[in-house]
Design a protein around this nucleic acid. Structure first.
Length: 215
DNA sequence: TTCCAGGCAATAC
DNA sequence: GTATTGCATGGA
């Protein structure tokens, strides 16, 4: 079921080639320079409960004013950093989160771990998995609200499942291939923007055949 | 005007 | 331990 949904989404939408870097989609396998990794980390933090469009504005502000690097960002004052990331919302909180992440990245940029990332203030499971998968190509399935929404509507997830339970279900069913994890998460996001929004638009949905929802 | 968007930590019960 | 609340902007 999990893999069939992947095929249906891939057939409909095509390869997504995430993560978006430098304002366009950048195939993950080529994203290995530190500057790109760091930008992915910033994006992962900034997009918490926030639309990617707003995150893009913040990243553009940063790119327009400085080098996208740990050193350049850390040299900003809190008020300057907050001002640059204002468009992505929660800017005071996210300023603190970026500071905390920077301290971790400074020491672990070559060897991040899931547990290490989860110990950073402001980094939860989704942000950690996004950094590992999209920044470093480490096998780690990313679960977000979209993943749960699709899974619950189609019928293979239950609302009360923990993050780890959902993640385990996907990781158990899928080939152990970071490119597949990458595409799958990106396809779910695309699907939720086109059809499976909070109020679903089921007309023309590629998952209609397997979905338990009736509209 | 209200609702929503690629969460997370702090607080309340 | 689980449920609720605060954080904030911009576009539909």
């Amino acid at each position: 079921m999990i893999y069939e949904i992947y095929s249906l989404l891939l057939n409909r939408y095509g390869p997504q080639g995430w993560w978006p870097v430098g304002g366009r989609y950048f195939p993950n396998k080529y994203v290995r320079e530190e500057r790109q990794i760091y930008e992915i980390c910033l994006g992962a933090i900034l997009t918490q409960n926030t639309s990617w469009k707003n995150v893009e504005k913040s990243l553009s502000n940063i790119r327009d004013n400085l080098d996208v690097s740990l050193e350049a960002v850390d040299s900003l004052s809190d008020t300057d950093l907050a001002e640059l990331i204002r468009p992505s919302g929660y800017f005071n909180q996210k300023t603190k989160k970026i500071r905390a992440f920077n301290a971790y990245f400074r020491k672990n940029r070559d060897k991040p771990s899931r547990d290490g990332l989860l110990g950073v203030w402001g980094v939860g499971p989704e942000t950690a998995d996004s950094i590992l998968l999209y920044g470093y190509g480490i096998l780690s399935f990313v679960v977000d609200t979209y993943t749960r929404r699709v899974g619950e509507r189609v019928g293979f997830l239950r609302r009360k499942m923990s993050y780890g339970q959902v993640r385990d279900i996907f990781e158990k069913e899928l080939p152990k291939d970071p490119d597949v994890y990458n595409e799958y998460h990106a396809l779910i996001v695309e699907h939720c923007k086109r059809h499976c929004m909070k109020t679903p638009r089921c007309t023309g949905c590629p998952l209609k055949r397997v979905c338990k929802m009736i509209f």
